[in-house]
Amino acid sequence: MITSQQIEAKASRLFGKVVKEWLQGRLASFFPYRLPANLTLPPDHARAIVDVERLRDASKESLGHGYRVVWQTRRSRTHGLNRFPDAIMIDTMDDLVQLAKCEEPWQRLQAAVATLRRRQPLLNHWLTTSTHWKSLLECADVLDDLLSIVDYFVAHPRPDCFARELPVPVSTKLIEGHRRRLATWLDIVLPSHAIDLRYGYDAFEPRYGLRYARPHYLLRVLDVELQQELGLPFAELSLPADSLSKLAVREVGIIIVENKVSLLSLPRMNRSLALGGLGNGVTQLSAIEWLKQNHVYYWGDLDAEGYAILDRLRQLLPATQSLLMCQPTVDQFSHLATPGNAVAAKILDNLTDQEQRCYQHLCANNTRIEQEHLPMQTVVEQLNLKTL
């Protein structure tokens, strides 16, 4: 027969479902709730009496709250004429909350929901979708401050200042700690012209019109004549993407390199330049227009992360060719392999069939060959084959 501890566990699992009903205004039709329960008594008469008494002692009948036992009087061959438990009922939300031991989060959630609905009614649809109430509960302690930030953006779309300069009396670090949550809310409450959809949630500042310290990209010009053609006093420089985009780069081979050391090791090459040390920053290269007008090659680590970067780069530049990212390279330099990060293979739609097979192999074997370990002579030979 079910125990009071098992009833509490069932109530705890039920809590989230009931919260969603409450948010939708359907709580009145939910209670009383019949809890699925095994109420079969054990055949041993003494044990049955003990089990029934324990069930009664922990019930609403004895404690004044919690679950209610529905009794039925019937005669049993084994136990004679007695009152037997026939059903377990939870009558109210308060009963459920106490059974689930969720009194404190329930109180905080009620206050947070009331605050959100009062200050930003447009967010109510978000609140009642999926399990977003859990996200609200996570930020309940700073909710008023977060909504003050939202209010400011509504009143001053695209404010053109740094996040820490917003004239809102909240911690200057609050946006940094809640970017994704704020972005979700701002997408709902702001007019479309206040959101630059070219940028994703990971680029919070440009998406919502804030100033920010733009990332710099390391550029190496691998050809002296090309350097003169571009009017550059230095063969190596670091600039933001929009500044690099102003260079008149034409009929050039461009090598995008994952790691900075490999970039710095590249030798001189005819009409070639290299961008490197980017890692996942390749997603922000869309501002460099001449990448779309020249031959682009990507050379990264032979591991799950390297192929994921290649996949993201091809979303921006579909014609990108990979260098040394194939099974023959893995086989030739297997003695240089080290354990990877145990990343499970994902669906990467922008890899070639050959790259896909190599990617799956590396993930399955948790293998990594870092590009810095490859002999530069092999790299140069491969680059010559690509006729940069």
Rank of each mutant, 00 (worst) to 15 (best):
A58S: 15
V52K: 12
G253C: 09
L166K: 15
A183G: 15
F31Q: 04
R83G: 00
L81D: 12
L244W: 14
F153C: 05
G276M: 03
R179Q: 14
K292R: 15
S272M: 08
N259R: 07
Q360L: 15
V261L: 13
G306N: 04
I309K: 09
F234E: 07
Y201I: 09
L348K: 06
Q284T: 04
H361E: 12
Q377I: 12
V249D: 09
K134T: 01
Y217Q: 03
V69K: 00
D301L: 10
P240L: 01
Q315R: 11
R34F: 04
D57S: 08
I188R: 11
A304F: 08
V50I: 10
T115E: 13
H361S: 07
R211P: 04
Q356I: 12
L99T: 00
A235V: 05
P233I: 00
E236S: 13
T92R: 13
L122K: 12
V69Y: 00
A37E: 01
N270K: 08
T367F: 10
V379N: 01
L302T: 10
D57I: 01
K346W: 03
K134G: 04
A304H: 08
H335T: 02
R180S: 10
G200S: 04
L123I: 07
S322P: 14
L96Q: 06
I90A: 10
E205K: 09
M325I: 15
Q120A: 14
P191D: 06
A345N: 04
V296E: 03
H193P: 03
V343M: 10
E104C: 10
K10P: 02
L182R: 08
L116G: 04
E258W: 05
D141W: 15
Q293H: 13
A11T: 01
A100R: 01
Y152P: 02
R250K: 07
P191E: 05
L324M: 15
A9T: 06
R54V: 01
G177S: 09
V154D: 02
S76P: 06
T131V: 06
P339E: 06
D144L: 14
V343E: 05
M1N: 02
L232I: 03
L99F: 00
L285R: 07
G64E: 09
P215G: 03
I2N: 00
T338H: 14
L351T: 09
Q354F: 02
R26C: 08
R271G: 05
G25P: 12
Q321M: 09
L137C: 07
D94S: 11
K260I: 06
K246Y: 12
W185S: 11
G300D: 05
E165N: 12
P328V: 04
Y297H: 14
L137T: 02
T387M: 11
Y307R: 03
E8P: 07
L316H: 08
Y298N: 08
M325C: 05
Q6L: 00
M89T: 09
G340I: 03
T387I: 15
E225Q: 06
A37I: 00
E355H: 02
W133E: 13
R180T: 06
W299G: 05
L310P: 13
G253D: 01
V379A: 11
E21S: 12
V224T: 08
I90L: 07
C161N: 03
H178C: 10
P157N: 09
H361N: 04
L266T: 05
C139S: 04
D311N: 15
A274P: 06
L41D: 04
V50C: 02
V296C: 15
L122H: 10
G253M: 11
E138V: 00
F15S: 10
L55P: 01
